[in-house]
Design a protein around this nucleic acid. Sequence first.
DNA 1: GATTGCAATGGCAACGCTGTCATTACCGGT
DNA 2: ACCGGTAATGACAGCGTTGCCATTGCAATC
Lengths: 342, 342
Amino acid sequence: MAKQRYRLTDRKSKVTVSDVARLAEVSDSTVSRIMRGQGLVADATREKVMAMVKALGYVPNRIAGSLASLDSRLVGVVIPSLSNIVFPEILQGINAGLAGTNRQSVISVTDYDLDKEEEVVRNLLAWQPAAVLIAGSIHTFATQKMLENSGVRVIEFMEIDHPPIDTAVGLSHVAAGKAAALHLVQRGYRRFGYVGYGGTLDLRARMRYQGLCEGLAEAGLGFVAESMSDGQTTVAKGKEQTSEICARVPDLDVLTFSSDDMAVGGLFHCLNAGIRVPEDLGLFGFNGLELGRALPQPLSTVRTNRFEIGKRAVEEFLLNPTRPDQPKIIDTGFEIFEGATA
Amino acid sequence: MAKQRYRLTDRKSKVTVSDVARLAEVSDSTVSRIMRGQGLVADATREKVMAMVKALGYVPNRIAGSLASLDSRLVGVVIPSLSNIVFPEILQGINAGLAGTNRQSVISVTDYDLDKEEEVVRNLLAWQPAAVLIAGSIHTFATQKMLENSGVRVIEFMEIDHPPIDTAVGLSHVAAGKAAALHLVQRGYRRFGYVGYGGTLDLRARMRYQGLCEGLAEAGLGFVAESMSDGQTTVAKGKEQTSEICARVPDLDVLTFSSDDMAVGGLFHCLNAGIRVPEDLGLFGFNGLELGRALPQPLSTVRTNRFEIGKRAVEEFLLNPTRPDQPKIIDTGFEIFEGATA
DNA sequence: GATTGCAATGGCAACGCTGTCATTACCGGT
DNA sequence: ACCGGTAATGACAGCGTTGCCATTGCAATC
């Protein structure tokens, strides 16, 4: 009498290759070949097996498959937030890039917390992804090391202001901020106010702010007033902070916002307060969201192409699945958009 | 001379439990126990092993782990779109619900295409997820069968208008539409216009439309004019279509939109065209987006709680990981929000 | 000193599939 | 009848981990 020692537990009556193979009277190998459409199989055999697959409702177990083939077909994606619309937009680009390939993305969110990012990356790497696409280039030392040692492709997207581990896809936020400042100076604005993110977590917002400051400094100017917040950047927040800064410093001639959301809020405040835009006050955003274009008056802003960033990040990996010797930077650029608000 | 037949391929010099075990002079079992913090291990041993783990940069292979333990710790999520802000909001709720558990979500997007949904579900199930959270209750027959047979928990979120496979979390879109119509009738509106989605893909938008029609019919009314589109529902589209319907049928007294985005676009048109809202024309949205609340005048709308829907969907699964005998419906409700536009 | 109890560790098959051969079946040419 | 070649299929180890025991070591108890 056999001992039947191991794994007496459930197994939930799952259907396996062996089940299909046995009932279709072929070997496991043949079923496997058919399921992934690779190798030579006679049409008759294929039909016989596929009929059995349908009958049993067999779904291949990709976990086992990945282990056996040492290839998970997974692409890890790490983003700081889902509430900031720009990240879903990037995910769309990633999705578009992945469409038609046999790869799957696994998305993790860090809430702008570098420690959480570390944990998230650790968990992600445990799934043996073929690549990791991660927002930003600033990580904890441990995260950096893990990514480096993983040997997989690491595409850091959004910003190209810092040297990447492997490849960076995005734009220079410092340069964008600077360009915006110089553009506004050139249009004649002199008394600048800043409304937006002033925390330490969203590093790209900080870089844009830094760029703005640099640009102003170059023109011998600087911010006359600032209204900083450190939470989410929303339309409501922008409205509120604009109201505050206008009350505090009434003689500004232009407001630069850390994001379009906030700038839209700013416009709403002006609409309510009877402030004429841009005659009394100019408003300038950042990102070029769809929302800004549909406003009663199009928002002046810096356009970045989030969809393209996501798409290019994926393409870079698909084109060359193994890590290059030299770090690489892909600049997707930005564009000053002259709307009707500044 | 040994033959060395199999798997001469790469292996990429990955570090495995055995490597750690050998160098730390313990067994594989002990390393495994330590890595997943389960079972008895002496502190000294744990430290010795962890030191080696750090030194080697060992990252456990969860693919192998999942295969061995027959538990992937994955939760599959299927949504139709990322460009419609409501889905990222639901993902946030899902993320919040999953935080602190050792489970990972895997997100797939169907682009409102039921055939793509079928493919996506097939791919998802191949990863042996512990649960599948899927938007909506209308699927292809094959998708339905796959989900049923998978044996895992299937939580259908967003709508509860159709009988679920296992559990549905969300609200009745028909009821919400009807309630909105009756509310507006009660406020004295009589000449209704509909602006929004009129395609066949977004089934929930259709149900809301149906609900609106039912509500109006109950009051002996109906839409005087409609402006349908079948693409994305955006602010720009709302603006454009509102402009069109106002030109075509100037004497409407209220417009109901298929979503807040469109309603915001409608308001922008009115702002530009000098139409007073709500005096000349009432505007009524759907969803209760943050954007609507921050408008110069708060948008009247039906509030739904997307974050809660996502969170509740996850909680339902965490609370009871095995499929219940009876289908279950969790109604997260909706609320008419009386803003300043209708 | 022998026995018991328990904490700590080890051994090994199994998870479901795929990669790498080996083998079989069949065909046409001589 | 024999051979060589190719199409089709089969056999089986191995992927890296975990579940299920078995075993060891050591202190407490008799």
